[in-house]
Amino acid sequence: MTHKPKLKLATTSLAGCFGCHMSFLDMDERLIELLEHIEFDRSPFTDIKQLDHCDIGLIEGGVCNAENVHVLRTYRANCRILVAVGACAINGGVPALRNHFSLKECLEEAYVKTPDMINPHIPDDPELPLLLNKVYPVHEVVKIDYFLPGCPPSADTFYRFLSELIEGKEPQIGKVELRYD
């Protein structure tokens, strides 16, 4: 029996809450079965920092700063299939609520106007990635191959999606995933 090589999977969280990653872990014991066919590369699950060439990249969260742009582009350059995972990656989600205000208004609200601030000022440490004027969905910055809707997508959604990729099928996002009531 020929043994198919394992698919390499990388994940990352940009402007997200890690809820999508938690939901991924909700696959519970099915993860063990999946690991027969998949191995993790760079991901918060592995703490591997260097991204290798991968088959699948899962992106949680939207794009809120320059570093997100670089990380996202690195994933695009190294992943054969790039997937936007969850409402934040697809639409900007909760972080994009700041899009109703200017960046200046947001930062002043948080770092200048808040009572009892010591040395109130807009943070400008060069270590901090520069913020974009708005939070953008990932597909506005790189090409995305699949979108997994949900906040977060359910463990079943992840499982179905990955199983289909493992079987070499074109993944179908079914009606179940697309309804929210």
Partner: peptide, 12 residues
């Protein structure tokens, strides 16, 4: 252009 505002605010 989307970084312009942040460049101004942080003077980087």
């Amino acid at each position: 252009a989307a970084l312009q505002e942040a460049r101004q605010l942080t003077r980087h």
